[in-house]
């Protein structure tokens, strides 16, 4: 039957991740969660384990934690944070508001999806440039041409500002743990130099993270899963700020603050 694979799973659960055996313990990826992991591994190591099935080194988990810090700004003008702040102002729960802000970062414009595209971009760039006769300059020229002469390369430039202070911070953490630059990071640097010279644009955190993790063999999908809630703490901060103020006091708008540009007044039936 065409439905055999579904029928075989009726009333059953199959897992490659773990199980809670009541009275015995909790298994996670073959580890005893309570006795092997708690107190022995960091939270971020377990986050990466759950997302990829692989336990990273404590050093790499520390670097992942730093990325979460770099993307958790308590400024409510940032789009996901604004949603958290509006939730606080509206009296929504912290869970609802933070979750809503996280969902907003499932966006191609900012947040998590650009990192996925950044991973795909730098890995494709590496493949094309390392092929016979390829060069970073030719690759950049082709990509710019694809975008009608604009430097819209994933991992370069960023909304609102030019330059990205978070890269230096993440490089500092990488140096603390003796991570070295691999081929993807070297190529990312070459591309940045070309864009800087031609368009006054530089790498953003997305480009840096994508190159760093590509050098360590992560896939785009794995990175998407690891960073699924990467912005959450900044959203919570903005929620708390407005939730602790009187209701409706975050960026309130008067009726006249909205500009209407639609249809003139009319009646149903055209009268």
């Amino acid at each position: 039957m065409n439905y055999d694979s579904w029928a075989a799973l009726r009333g059953k659960i199959k897992s490659k991740k773990g199980i809670w055996r009541i009275g015995e313990g909790v298994e996670s990826h073959g580890y005893d969660l309570i006795n092997d992991l708690v107190g022995h591994y960091s939270f971020m190591q377990v986050v990466v384990l759950n997302a990829t099935g692989r336990m990273p080194s404590r050093a790499l988990a520390h670097w992942f934690e730093a990325v979460h810090m770099c993307l958790s700004w308590p400024d409510p003008r940032i789009w996901c944070n604004r949603i958290g702040a509006l939730g606080g102002s509206a009296g929504a729960s912290v869970v609802a508001a933070t979750s809503a802000g996280i969902m907003a970062t499932d966006s191609r414009a900012y947040g998590i999806r650009p990192i996925v595209e950044g991973m795909e971009f730098i890995q494709r760039a590496q493949t094309e440039v390392s092929s016979e006769g390829g060069s970073a300059a030719e690759f950049v020229a082709r990509e710019v041409k694809k975008h009608n002469g604009k430097p819209y390369l994933m991992g370069y430039a960023r909304p609102v500002a030019k330059g990205d202070e978070r890269i230096a911070a993440l490089e500092r953490v990488a140096r603390q743990h003796d991570f070295t630059r691999g081929p993807h990071m070297r190529l990312a640097g070459e591309i940045e130099a070309l864009l800087s010279e031609q368009f006054d644009e530089s790498m953003n955190i997305n480009g840096y993270v994508s190159a760093f993790l590509s050098d360590l063999g992560f896939s785009a999908e794995e990175v998407y899963r690891i960073f699924s809630v990467v912005v959450f703490s900044g959203i919570t901060a903005c929620y708390v700020d407005s939730a602790d103020r009187p209701a409706g006091h975050f960026a309130p708008l008067q009726v006249d603050d909205i500009e209407y540009s639609g249809k003139e007044d009319r009646q149903i039936g055209g009268k």
Binding site: D257, Y260, S261, G262
Partner: peptide
């Protein structure tokens, strides 16, 4: 100012 074609409110 936020612009909309949908809603026109009068205060």
């Amino acid at each position: 100012r936020i612009e909309t074609k949908i809603t026109r409110e009068t205060s």
